[in-house]
Design a protein around this nucleic acid. Structure first.
Lengths: 127, 127
DNA sequence: CGGGATCCGGATGGATACTG
DNA sequence: CAGTATCCATCCGGATCCCG
């Protein structure tokens, strides 16, 4: 339409997290995970190579930060940047989509409310 | 931990939209697109095959509905189901992540406010 | 411990041509 | 117009081995 084509903001956000495991790794970091090995827990299909590439990509996009604490043995920790932390509402809505689905039989009512509170607190959603 | 392992609700939501173009197609449908051809506009890298598979997947997951209106020439329309429409807040937060980033130089302030309103109205966000 | 290097088969993506 | 068929490129996942 215009010579100055405006990119859709949704596309711009997606371009930051378009790797298969990006969102789940960010979610993990909100829940306190910091180490390479921790991100692999509960993700049997995530290989070293893919995780490594994903972490690099997230770092390149400014969402996470890598801190090397020690050499031999190497200790590395990953943290969300402020920019990364501002993804909290996206993660929150992704969780609520499932937790607000009353037809979902995987979550009994009480469990659902408990999980909602957990996410609200962990993601620091204030409203 | 438990014998009855609870799947993270974020993972459950992601499993519904884990194809590369799913979210962008849903976004398009919120903005009124209905036809196969329309979804390909502005997505030069989206091939017929991939789009076809993606639409089938979204339909299988109950997010969209396919209506064949005509044969020769074939006319098909795709619509969001109620379930699909409840993704509105996810799309909204994906847009706001970019539009709330004051350092992003691609959007001057007035343009940003205009876009925010457009998304709020189109996605029927009431708060 | 946190990766990188390599190999490999399979899945996914993309481009083009074609059909009802 | 809405796909299907085909072919090729890329990415993913899994295994294993290695290094500082």
């Amino acid at each position: 339409m215009n010579p100055e084509k405006v990119v859709c903001p949704v596309d711009r956000t997606l371009s930051l997290i378009n790797k298969k495991w990006s969102i789940q790794i960010i979610r993990d970091m909100f829940f306190g995970k910091k180490h390479f090995k921790e991100f692999k827990e509960d993700k049997p299909n995530l290989s070293n190579k893919v995780l490594s590439n994903c972490l690099k990509d997230l770092e390149k996009n400014g969402l996470i930060e890598k801190k090397v604490l020690n050499t031999s043995p190497v200790t590395t920790e990953y943290y969300l940047t402020e920019y990364g932390q501002s993804m909290n509402r996206i993660i929150y809505e992704l969780a609520m989509f499932t937790l607000d689905d009353d037809l979902d039989e995987n979550y009994p009512e009480d469990k659902r409310d408990e999980l909602k509170n957990t996410f609200r607190q962990t993601l620091k959603i204030d409203d």
